[in-house]
């Protein structure tokens, strides 16, 4: 008798930042586009470098590579446009990536308490364990600002 185990597979997009790959839920992805002109203006959100204009919409650019791989991308091949949630609202954000993106289906392993805030979960692909990114924690916004403030608060230790 064979036992069929039902595994819930989900769709993800793999993105490359330098030598490393990460994953985002495919339902968050809008499109992958060639780099276009960056418009810059004064602001104080240092994680954002400017905006691009795409089909009449203005989209902020956030290079997350420094947080994830420790250095800014020197080569940008594409912008991966993804949805980032702000409460119930969602807005597009452009993430510079250094290589092709790939659509895969894989099983999601939930995050654990010890994982960093930007890790939404894990998946296994071609023998690699890849982080599934939590854009709400990785890119600036009210949630990320609150989280940074909370992390900078000294923790009270009680005996």
């Amino acid at each position: 008798m064979s036992v069929v185990t039902e595994i819930a597979l989900e769709a993800f997009v793999l993105l490359r930042l330098g030598e490393r790959r990460f994953a985002l839920g495919a339902n968050q992805i809008v499109e992958l586009i060639a780099p276009s002109r960056v418009f810059r203006f004064p602001h104080r959100t240092t994680a954002l470098e400017g905006v691009i204009l795409r089909r009449g919409r203005i989209i902020p650019i956030c290079d997350v590579s420094e947080q994830l791989v420790g250095k800014k991308l020197t080569l940008r091949r594409f912008y991966l446009i993804a949805h980032r949630f702000f409460g119930a609202q969602k807005e597009a954000i452009a993430l510079p990536v250094s290589g092709d993106c790939e659509l895969i289906t894989a099983e999601l392993t939930p995050r654990s308490e010890s994982d960093l805030a930007h890790v939404a979960g894990w998946l296994s692909h071609n023998g690699d364990a890849l982080e599934i990114l939590n854009l709400e924690a990785l890119t600036p916004g009210p949630f990320a600002t609150r989280m940074v403030a909370a992390l900078s608060q000294p923790t009270e230790v009680r005996a």
């Binding site: 104080r44 989209i59 990320a144």
Partner: peptide, 9 residues
């Protein structure tokens, strides 16, 4: 302004 801009701007 996109909500990702979250400071004085």
């Amino acid at each position: 302004l996109p909500q990702a801009f979250c400071h004085e701007e």
